[in-house]
């Protein structure tokens, strides 16, 4: 099956500022691809080219076999879009907006169900301008899905949502995926990417650094795991340093801190067990996607994009 979205050697500059240097991506049918990267990495410009809102300077883009510029009208019927800064008419009420936007599409979703699902039913008669940031965000997600799209591109899905609303939205998105909708998620929340994404494309300075599963990405960042415990009886450092998976052993008071690769924990517990030592107050710090992000880009994922 051909990929749902195919981006090849995308290049886009604004004046002298290169927003996207060279991005190639494929998104397969039914998956959630996360686009992750620091501020100004070119994430939004990339998806805006895919949506047909911007004209690339170079490169090729196909979405469902369509050219986003030439076949824009056809594409809009099948692609749901949540823009990072796309507002709607400020005096339009929530229910009016959903009903109106659903009438734009040949086979719309049930907008009332979407409104309930996103917790907006109580705001049905509220004007857009009077909504809180989180409510506007939820409405914009509903509007992206109201046309029953085959592909949805969601830019900053849960920015501005409180933790509960964020989790509810994740559930909603999982439900959308289970109906076979292909989703591209631009995000800077590592937890969101780990929870939702089948694959993550890490973009930095206008280039794709790496594409992998969230776990694979963490693995490939080669971040050391930290294992910390209090031995039930004295233990010789050499016992641990001799293990090939362990890279260092340090002591902090009565605690032993071991760093090593992902197999280090197994090796350490095995050698302790052989020597009849119990690891008390054992704590393992695993590398998170965020650690991988920092390791691979040298930047912090920022809250604003």
């Amino acid at each position: 099956m051909p990929p749902v979205i195919e981006v090849r050697n995308l290049h886009k500059r604004y004046g002298n500022n290169v927003a996207v240097d060279d991005v190639s991506l494929t998104v397969e049918e039914g998956e959630i691809l996360g686009i992750l990267g620091p501020n100004g990495a070119g994430k939004t410009t990339t998806v805006e080219c895919v949506e047909g809102l911007r004209v690339p300077d170079r490169g090729e883009i196909k979405v469902l076999g369509l050219d986003p510029r030439r076949d824009h009208a056809e594409l809009t019927r099948r692609l749901g879009v949540q823009l990072q800064d796309g507002q709607i008419q400020e005096r339009l009420e929530v229910a009016e907006a959903l009903e109106l936007y659903s009438s734009f599409y040949p086979e719309p979703a049930d907008w009332r169900a979407l409104m309930d699902g996103l917790g907006l039913a109580g705001k049905a008669k509220t004007r857009y301008a009077k909504l809180s940031g989180g409510q506007k965000q939820r409405l914009s997600i509903a509007l992206a899905l109201v046309g029953s799209p085959r592909v949805a591109i969601l830019d900053e899905l849960t920015t501005g949502l409180d933790p509960q609303a964020r989790r509810d939205t994740w559930e909603l998105i999982e439900g959308v995926r289970s109906r076979g909708v292909t989703i591209v998620l631009v995000t800077h929340f590592m937890e969101e990417a780990e929870r939702l994404c089948d694959r993550v494309a890490l973009i930095d300075a206008g280039r794709v650094v790496m594409v992998d599963t969230p776990a694979g990405l963490t693995e490939r960042a080669r971040i050391e795991h930290r294992i910390q415990f209090r031995p039930s009886r004295p233990v010789d450092d050499a016992l641990l340093t001799s293990l090939p998976d362990v890279s260092s052993v340090t002591r902090r008071g009565e605690l032993v801190v071991v760093t090593g690769n992902s197999d280090a924990l197994t090796a350490v517990t095995a050698v302790l067990a052989r020597n009849r030592i119990v690891a008390e107050r054992l704590r393992v710090e695993q590398a998170s996607l965020e650690d991988a992000f920092v390791e691979l880009t040298g930047k912090r994922p920022d809250a604003t994009s």
Partner: peptide, 14 residues
């Protein structure tokens, strides 16, 4: 999130 099952496409004459 009851929307999931019900948000399937419905063809309504608009």
């Amino acid at each position: 999130m009851s929307a999931l099952s019900t948000a399937a496409p419905v063809t309504v004459k608009h």
